[in-house]
Design a protein around this nucleic acid. Structure first.
Lengths: 254, 254
DNA sequence: AAATTTCTGTAACTTAGGTTACATAGTGCA
DNA sequence: TGCACTATGTAACCTAAGTTACAGAAATTT
C-alpha cells in the first residue's frame, strides 16, 4: 500500500488515459518496421488488423514509469515496440515477485484482462527501460477483436502461453527449493544471453523471485563455491554451465 | 512420472480421442436445459454459437477419470454440464497442488491452451465426480471462434479470469504463511457452502494447497483450539465465522 | 466380531528460509 | 583524497514448514 503510493507520488506516472507524446503513425511501411518483433501478429495480419494498427498512436514512456497499479483501469491496449515492462505483485511486507515481463512482440495479459473483463487487478506494471509503444484505444481493440481473425488468434495465443508460464511459477513456489529456483533463473538468463554476464544486483534478483536479498547473497555465494558462477558487483559471470545445470536439476545438493 | 503412469494404468482413462457413450443432443430446448449453468455463454449466444452447441455430443465420464495428463493432446473442447474436474500439478516427490477446478459454466483453460496453441502441458486433469459434458471437436471449436462473437467473448473472459486467479495462487505461495492460506481456503469454502460442514480429509486438503497431511492436521488443530472450527473424521465444521475471518486476515497470530 | 484399511493426533527432530545486525568493499563524485 | 552511497558478505538467531515415526480412532470388509 505505502509502497505503491510512494511510487505513484514520487515517480513519473502516466495513466493510460493520458498518453504523453502520442503521435500518429502514418504509412504502412513505417508500421511494419516498428512491429518487426511481432512476426506472429504481422505476417498473417488481415485487413481489420492493419486498420487497427494504422489507428494506433506511437507513445514514448521513460524508464521507471508505473503503467498501471492496483485498481487502475486501462483505456488502451499497448503494443510494445521498444523496451520492456515488468509486471509484478507486491506484498504488504514490502517484498515483490515478478510475474512476467512484456517485451516487444508480446502483450500484457493483465492489460488484456482489464480490457476484456473491465476488472482491475491489484498488480503493478512498470517500465524497466525507456519504452516506445503503440497505443490502441479500447473501442478499437474491441472492434478489432470482432473483425480480425488474425488479431484474435494472436491474443488467444498470448493469453494461453502466459497461463502456462504462470503454472510454472506456481509449481516452482510449491515444490522447489530456493537454490533450485535461483539456479534455473540463472540458467535461463545465461541461455538467452549466450553466457554473457548477467547484470543484476542481489536485491533485484530477490524481488524477481519473491525472496530477500540476504537469501540470494547466501545462495549465490554457495554457487560460487561450487564454481558455477563468479560474482562481481552488480554482475554474475558464468563459470561452468555444466555445474550450474547440475545445481538447477537439484543434483549436487552438497 | 511413476505417479502419472500408475494412475493411467490403474484407473479408467478416456483419451479425449475416444469419447465413451457419446450421443447427439437433438433439440435446442434440451440444450438450454443442459447449459443453464452457462448463462454468460447462453444468454447472448449468436447463431454460430448455437450451431456449435447443436453439433456437440453429450458424454458421460465416471468419477476418477484422467481427462488429460502430461503430454496428451486434446482433440475436443469440453463444456461441463454436470460434475467437476480438478486440474492439478504434481511434483516429483509425490506432492500435488490444485491449480483450479472446472465446474459447470466454466472451461478448462488448459484444454483451451492445447486447442489454441497445439502445445501439450505437463499438468493433470481428473474428474472428481461422475461427470457429464458436451464435447466439441477441435475443428468446430476453431470455426466457432471465427464465426461467433459471443463464444469468443466467453472464451476470452474465462481465460483472463483464470489468469487473475493464478496470480492469487502465486502471491499466496510467495507471501502467505500456510495457516493463512488454509484459513482463506476454509473461509471461501464455508462461504460458498453457506456454512455447511466441508467434506474433506486432511490429506486431500494438503494436496489442494501443495503441502503435507501433517501440516494440515497441525494447523487445523490450532484452529480448533482457537474455536474457529470443529474437526470430525472427513469433515470440518464451522464454529465461529468471525474467529476464522480473523485468522484468515493474519490477525490473532496467537 | 475380527481384521483391515483409512484417517487423525502428536511429539521429536531436521531443514529451509527469513531476520537482525553488522562489517566491508566498490563507485561516483565533491 | 575523502565522503556518501550502494552493493555485498556473513554470523547468529528465529521461525515456518517438512519429516519421521509412531499411536490410536473410526470406518469398512471379511
Amino acid at each position: 500500500m505505502s509502497a505503491i503510493s510512494s511510487l505513484v507520488d514520487h515517480e513519473q506516472v502516466s495513466t493510460s488515459a493520458q498518453p504523453c507524446q502520442a503521435e500518429s503513425v502514418s504509412p504502412n511501411l513505417h508500421l511494419k518496421g516498428l512491429l518487426f518483433k511481432y512476426p506472429t501478429l504481422i505476417e498473417n495480419a488481415d485487413e481489420a488488423c492493419w486498420d487497427m494498427l494504422n489507428q494506433a498512436k506511437l507513445m514514448n514512456v521513460p524508464a521507471g514509469t508505473v503503467l498501471f497499479h492496483e485498481a487502475m483501469e486501462c483505456k488502451h491496449l499497448m503494443l510494445i515496440v521498444e523496451g520492456q515492462v515488468r509486471v509484478y505483485k507486491d506484498s504488504s511486507e514490502g517484498r515483490e515477485v515478478t510475474l512476467y515481463r512484456v517485451a516487444p512482440g508480446q502483450l500484457c495479459v493483465h492489460n488484456l484482462n482489464n480490457l476484456v473483463n473491465g476488472l482491475a487487478y491489484p498488480i503493478m506494471a512498470q517500465t524497466e527501460t525507456d519504452m516506445q509503444g503503440l497505443v490502441i484505444p479500447r473501442p478499437i481493440f474491441h472492434k478489432t477483436l470482432e473483425d480480425s481473425a488474425s488479431f484474435r488468434t494472436y491474443v488467444l495465443r498470448t493469453l494461453t502461453e502466459r497461463l502456462s508460464h504462470m503454472v510454472d511459477l506456481v509449481s516452482g513456489f510449491a515444490f522447489d527449493r530456493l537454490d533450485l529456483r535461483i539456479a534455473c533463473w540463472l540458467n535461463h538468463e545465461f541461455e538467452i544471453g549466450c553466457g554473457k554476464p548477467i547484470k543484476i544486483t542481489h536485491s533485484e534478483l530477490a524481488q524477481e523471485l519473491g525472496t530477500t536479498r540476504e537469501m540470494v547473497s547466501r545462495i549465490l555465494k554457495e554457487f560460487e563455491h561450487k564454481r558455477c558462477v563468479q560474482l562481481a558487483r552488480g554482475k554474475i559471470h558464468l563459470q561452468c554451465r555444466h555445474t550450474l545445470k547440475l545445481a538447477s536439476q537439484g543434483k549436487g545438493k552438497k
